[in-house]
């Protein structure tokens, strides 16, 4: 195993920790807003780390660029999705 492999896999494992935290947050937090808070932050960072880890393992720069694009798109969609769900939940409440 090269240094590159260890770094890549290590960062990916760290990413899964964030996913795990987000999942625990969904299951344990009391209301929609705090659940959203947990899942959007944790998933975003978790995915960022997994994308970073896989780009370190990736064969070439083009693959790494595609992984970066995937992360950007999911981060943007996740943020707007969380925002829309929170908006909806807020309207239902008032």
């Amino acid at each position: 195993m090269s240094v590159q492999d260890i770094m890549g896999v290590g960062i990916m494992v760290l990413g899964t920790v964030f996913f795990l935290a987000g999942t625990v947050g969904i299951l344990r937090f009391p209301d929609a807003f705090s659940r959203l808070h947990a899942v959007t932050k944790a998933d975003n960072l978790g995915l960022a780390l997994i994308a970073l880890g896989t780009s370190i393992l990736a064969a070439d720069g083009f693959t790494a660029a595609k992984l970066f694009l995937i992360w950007i798109l999911i981060a943007v969609s996740g943020a707007i999705g969380g925002h829309l769900i929170a908006r909806h939940a807020l309207r239902d409440k008032s």
């Binding site: 798109l73 943007v76 969609s77 943020a79 707007i80 829309l84």
Partner: peptide, 16 residues
Amino acid sequence: PLGPLFLPFAKVIVPS
């Protein structure tokens, strides 16, 4: 209406 954040989102997503 989807709020003020939707337009910037669309500006990224639609061209992509």
